[in-house]
Design a protein around this nucleic acid. Sequence first.
DNA 1: CTGAAAGCGCTTACAG
DNA 2: CTGAAAGCGCTTACAG
Lengths: 332, 332
Amino acid sequence: MSQNPTLKKIAEKLNVSISTVSRALKDHPDISPETKRKVNELAELIEYDPNPYAVNLRTHNSKEFAIVVPSLSNFFYHSFISSIEEDARMYGYSVIIYRSANDPKIELEILKSCRHKRVSGIFIAITSETKEIEPFLKLDTQGIPVIFFDKVPEYESCNKICVGDAHAATLAANEILKKGFKRVFGVFGDKNMSITQVRLQKFAEVISNDGSEIILETVHATSSAEAEAMTLKALSNYKKNDFVIFCMSDETLAGAMKAIQRKGLKTPEDIGIVAISDGMIPQLFYPEITYAETSGFKLGKLAFNRMMKCIAGSSFAQTIIDQSMLIEGGSL
Amino acid sequence: MSQNPTLKKIAEKLNVSISTVSRALKDHPDISPETKRKVNELAELIEYDPNPYAVNLRTHNSKEFAIVVPSLSNFFYHSFISSIEEDARMYGYSVIIYRSANDPKIELEILKSCRHKRVSGIFIAITSETKEIEPFLKLDTQGIPVIFFDKVPEYESCNKICVGDAHAATLAANEILKKGFKRVFGVFGDKNMSITQVRLQKFAEVISNDGSEIILETVHATSSAEAEAMTLKALSNYKKNDFVIFCMSDETLAGAMKAIQRKGLKTPEDIGIVAISDGMIPQLFYPEITYAETSGFKLGKLAFNRMMKCIAGSSFAQTIIDQSMLIEGGSL
DNA sequence: CTGAAAGCGCTTACAG
DNA sequence: CTGAAAGCGCTTACAG
């Protein structure tokens, strides 16, 4: 069991002290080049790697990041996680994934576990029920940076990396105006989520501010199946060529597309559709669906960047909004 | 910084020794009920939680599982990870995610990191280039159980949890025979992957053994785009109603569906399609695509189960095959 | 029933 | 340039 190389073993073989070996390995200026060479050679040979638990016990630096998300069955979070994982490994960090199941109690437990592990930092998308953010702020003051992403609290002075909800909604709405549709059917998600509120509000604002006589009907669906049923119902009094559907998320998009297919309608000939999406689902269809992109991958890069700055000592809280881009398919 | 509760602090407050506190907390029979009560009360009060790094340094038990996958942008792996994460947290383990980027060198590095962290166990889908499995076996003998899943090595005596490739291919092939198609176009993945070989071989076998005059054409695509191009080409001499497409994976399915939509064909009226899939993509279309299910979630449950047995001391290596089920959509 | 002591593997002031 | 020593927070034989 104890066959793992340790400082002690190297020290014994080389007839120097453990301290010397430790210093040589971290290229401490005190140590002679000759000793350094010998130590490094042997370390290489026997594949020495410091025991991370011992290091942490001394230094309280775990070289682990935690990512906490409400759910793992979500393309957006996957690409966020991939993105973080990619950067983390370059910097020698590992990534621990936690799933809060959208339950604030579990979320709190996870935070506790993060604290005891003394993770180097936490990326978190909070649950839709999370009310208290003191526990998060406390971690921050204890030296564990917390970067909120996607689902973030209202509270001002914390680090937040968000999708540009208003901007994405505007892009989609403008595209609809540009094409001159007469009726818009907007499929939105759970009413309680702040992103739903922002997207809905902005979308409605842009559409109605246009001055033209566009009819906007909106619904809230909490699942794909619900989105499908609602869209189907809306399509019952469908008239060719003046109708466009807007979906605020991949989940609602999946449902709406199902309804469109069920009705045997074709985009863009029979009906238009545009969404806010991470891009995976839009690309499964032909013509590809036009969408305002919310990239988990890009968000991950921004979040990681911010994290590294926090670790380097930046205590200045910042909200970063990732502006989205319109990706043109041919669906409207 | 050092404001975290420790055994020492409890001991001081209660005027007992650290040893006593440690024992009381783990309900050691030696300790008096009275002492236990006092210790536990205080521990509760100040929210004591053992420092996992200190515990590990002593016990070499990390309570962390590692999951290693070639890529994270894959629905199948996501559901596998979700599944493991769910079980792991119930048992008080955390889950570390590693991505090998399908590179055996990175894979090796990850293994090394797992060894030094002394993770409690590893779930791994190996890269398609992995030749040497000694490093894996070595971990196993060092007391870190390795459970291979999905992409597993040929080597016999190790723990493997696989999708029933042959069975899934058979299910799909039988469905095709049942419906009496005349021409089958099979879209397969990377030739080098063992799952491709098994699926192709079995599929071809079942189709050709039927005795009827079915024409089977197969291609290998390494991306969705390639699958789309190849399917498009095959569709150029398409004749209504005798043509069915089989896709061995979600990736190839995405490509084939794109081609079908591009041609303006409808399933099942114009053309049939059947796949092996995790189920996410098939459900996006209407009619839903019929598929032989390979469930990452179910595989995860099986793998976790096996892991717990290994940790409990089972040294007997075992290969578990998860038989798939045919999920009927209406696509052929 | 309880405690003193060693030790897991490392880091880092302190001393020389 | 190098080493002895203390200590991170815990566990566990050993002794009483």
